[in-house]
Design a protein around this nucleic acid. Sequence first.
DNA 1: AGAAGCTCTGCT
DNA 2: GCAGAGCTTCTT
Length: 740
Amino acid sequence: MNCDHPTVLTLALPTPLFRHFEYLAPADYTPAQNDALIPGIRVEVPFGRQTLVGILISKSHTASYPIEKLKPAYQALDAKPVIHGDILALCQFAAEYYQHPLGEVMMAALPQKLRASDGALPQTAYWQLTTEGKGLNSENFKRSPKQQTAWEVLLHSAPLAETALTAKQVDKSALKQLQKKNLAETFLADAQALPASQQVLNETPRTLNNEQQHALDTIRFHKFGCYLLEGITGSGKTEVYLQAIARVLQAGQQALVLVPEIGLTPQTVARFEERFAVPITQLHSNVAKGARLENWHSAFSGQARIVIGTRLAVFAPLPELGIIIVDEEHDLSFKQQEGLRYSARDLAIVRAKKNNIPLLLGSATPSLESLHNALQQRYHHLRLTQRAANAATPALQLLDMRKQPQHAGIAQASMDAISATLERGEQALVFINRRGFAPSLICQSCGWSAACKYCDARMTLHNSPRKLHCHHCGAMAYPPSQCPSCMNPALSALGQGTERAEETLQAAFNQHTVIRVDQDSMQRKNAMAELTQQLLEGQPCLLVGTQMLAKGHHFPNVTLVVIVDTDQGLLSGDFRGIERMGQQVIQVAGRAGRAEKPGTVIIQSYRPDHPLLTQLITEGYHNFAKSILGERASCRMPPYNHMALLRAESKRADNAKALLTKAAQIARQLQPPSPECSYLGPIPAFMERRNDRFRYQLQLQFSHRQTRTQLLQQLVEALNKEALSKRVRWSIDVDPQDMG
DNA sequence: AGAAGCTCTGCT
DNA sequence: GCAGAGCTTCTT
């Protein structure tokens, strides 16, 4: 080793400090080992009193830090980079755009197992026939067809990994049998991408209608472009995805499909597996850690040709990526709500651009951001307006609640419609976006109400088991038997939740099955899958549930949908409340009448003359959304400007407020308020105290993204120098989706 | 962030 | 006199 020119490693470490750290190469490393330190590998280093795993950014012989103060790294953890190419660029973009330290972003892009020093890139087990196995002929397998298939596949190919074998319909246990008989064997090796498979399809694609064909024909492959596929429920968006993916696979490329958190049902994956003869892998938080590393690695090595996953999959390494699809692109779950607050949809756009490939955004109810881009012709706007297989569009009926006798929030007219539906032997669905029995417990004689000790919120009454529950912090309490304030023994449960609706409906339709679907009733792992199966059998029944019913699941036998509390969105303090309400109504409505039976949707409202609500019902989502865009344009709200939220919370209210006041002052100095740039705050969050902390926010709005990025960068730097910033929990939310 | 070291409380 | 909370400092 040349002591005049030691090897200096620049690392990105997972710390909240916005800078790189320099180390010497491990003291005992030979020149050959030093050469193997290549950017993108993980390196284990001492950091203060801790040991951390970082990513090697660059290697040189000079340091910006006094070289005699550099500590030697402990060891390199990889022989080849785990982060490189487009993922590195994506991480760098995200770090800058969302104001997050690069080391933390990179760690977020890696599967958890690789964030620790004991995790390593797995090697893949390859199968091949033994000499003995090669000497046999098909006669030897007369009585075991599965083993014969396995043997034939192995005989006619180079050694194959298990994922590739599964895609070729080879049975795993048959392989084990061959191994037992010493006819086949495995060996470990670095995974190799498969040669472009000739066979991509398992089944014949469906015939596309004109609109679908036009959409598919518009997509230009091997070139960057955003395509907004706006298609009503049942118009066959999935078939367009499948055929676009087929093109990409035939060109020897990989596909990435992002779906909302709860939308990733086993049915979705099964649909892809039915169509394609290539290895498909899944990446989402329900995949166990070990399996997630395996799945990540099969994408990394190029073995998996399709990756289906939730927002975290936007960072999945795909060396031959040819298309990205974001299904239900309006869905909130694409935005991470803590830590690195990224939007997987927006990062997908960045990634598609860097990779020069097409990006398909699909939704029946596109976000205003995407719709705006489409209308501005930054995106290709592809619309699917016809339902497949002659299925009728559900009829939307607005029900004026002011003139209705009602039972626990459900109008008599709704009850009659449910009754008629069940009589016809069909299924009905009642949508209430509140779990529990009632959202509050109050004393009607003195006005006391059961409030949460830790939040500015009332506790929700649950009946089975009987408890008061705070939905904001998780606190639990037993309902008092009398009013703690005036000793009145009769307390009233006010308002409607799913439990109460279930009780009321079960009493009214006691000869039918009523099933409640919410977080509480669907705790078991396969509960939803079992329910879907049960519903497919078509017995008449009544479903009562929350959001959970609105996403991803298809209930072909449901012909009536009742939406109980439509008005919540109209009253919400969030400027996106109305947009959400519209999306929710249309999404819930989409559950009805998917088959040949026409569906009806009853929308209960106390504001039936609200112009946007009536427009939604008479003209549909597209025009409704355009109207909201008009309002956003006139008051310069997103997508017509670019927002960031600086949130702060602390046990002592004045600390959080003072930090934001300071931040506002710094911001004004850096970038004086103007039509291009404005600051609002500090203002209290919608719920000022939550989980025993006081919460405030500073709203920052900009005409140009670039101005925002620059200002935020300087603001974060300045805030980190403030002593107060260490006593207050604060974070920056770029493009916030939830203003709470 | 996370660990360690320092200082200021509030007691028995 | 001292445990423990709360605050500061440091990390290459």
